[in-house]
Design a protein around this nucleic acid. Structure first.
Lengths: 224, 224
DNA sequence: CGGGATCCCCCGAGATACTG
DNA sequence: CAGTATCTCGGGGGATCCCG
């Protein structure tokens, strides 16, 4: 048994052999947002040793999860893209992200938010909410140095990193923004205490809070 | 940033800090089946260093995922049990197991099946199938040295490790059993080529194959 | 005998410098 | 931009030992 295998004919063991390697889940999180260059990945994963990123990308390519695209690029840049098999990890990684977010109250010291993590968080949040019936609405969300935007058309929510050219509402996350996503505070309270600052129609903040929901884990009194 | 953290305020990063540690996913897989003693875990995880198991259990306890129950046990044994927070990992780990199983054709050299992994596989398989309308049916499934049993009542499927006292059908998995679960071969073919051996009513094998389904990943021709 | 703790070795991760 | 090279160091693997 190699240092990566578990010696068990088990689906979870096979998944653990891939995802249990350090940094792999975060690399895949960023690639789930879209194809990325090596330097994009380095920028979105502060602290990752560059040799480790190179090793992981090779492993993921060998395992059929990622493809390295070099040819047919006029700008000669190299792009890493998920295969269909890699994209199949989306539901599982979203479920893990939802589980992790359920006890995530405030950032630990020095913790940052990246465009990819914010985009992922909003994608997961969109699965937990239910957009009110209305025409197309575009949000831009800022959290720390990260920016993402979301376009909501009926039940359809599309989230992408970066600015939106023409947002209906711009939200800037404050210290209690996570509480707003959990429904622990109302949009009105969030505005009052600086949990969120907005530019645009305040009524749209109610729509936002209904569309994007990430509940907190209920603290069981009896912990069994 | 410690050697376990990622320095990102991100749900998936938080999950990775727990599940990215070696052996942790398999420990949780076994505990999802039910409370287990230290020695049960050692037996179900061949190759795990005992000190590492002890370390992991302490970390999981500190993180509120596992509780250690010592008191009130007449036989003085210690049992590890998932908290509500730990049990919340069920859907995410099942999704990971489904992803891993989708490309799992045959065991690699020396790979084994444990009671817990077989039980987990059947639980995941029950989510992918649809039991035909019938009265209560009990199956006993053997794969390698592992044994599990399942009780199917309508849409309700309950899977547990070990023998069933009174099974309606006993299945012993052969080399092509995985193909049967994927629907790549019919129950008749599976019987003919030794992919499965049964004791009991052969018609129940059709019901089994409809109830427990784990599809193979479709091999995309265009791998994007 | 169940439930660990201790020890040593070594590989993989971190950090940083360097290169095609 | 996209990695490779090199070094150091901590955590995992493996065996053994210990304690109630």
């Amino acid at each position: 048994m190699g240092s990566r295998e578990y010696g068990q004919f088990c689906g979870l063991a096979r998944a653990a052999e891939v995802l249990g390697q350090r940094w792999t889940m975060l690399i895949l999180r960023d690639l789930l947002v879209g194809p990325r260059r090596y330097s994009d990945l380095v920028a979105g994963l502060p602290g990752i040793p560059t040799n480790l990123l190179a090793t992981r990308l090779k492993e993921l390519e060998r395992d059929g999860i990622v493809v390295r695209e070099a040819r047919d690029r006029p700008d000669r840049s190299i792009v890493y893209r998920l295969t269909a098999r890699g994209a199949d990890l989306g539901p599982a990684l979203d479920a893990l992200g939802r589980w992790g977010a359920a006890t995530m109250h405030a950032p630990r010291d020095g913790e940052i938010v990246t465009d990819a993590s914010l985009t992922t968080a909003l994608r997961v949040a969109a699965q937990g909410g239910r957009a009110p019936d209305q025409q197309s609405v575009t949000y831009t969300i800022r959290a720390g140095d990260a920016v993402a935007h979301a376009v909501v058309r009926g039940r359809q929510v599309e989230v992408a990193p970066g600015e939106s050219p023409s947002p209906d509402l711009v939200l800037t996350a404050g210290p209690g923004f996570r509480d707003l996503l959990a429904g622990a505070i109302t949009p009105e309270e969030a505005l009052a205490d600086g949990s969120v600052e907005i530019t645009g129609d305040p009524d749209l903040l109610d729509a936002f809070a209904a569309t994007f929901v990430v509940p907190y884990a209920t603290r069981a009194l009896d912990n069994r």
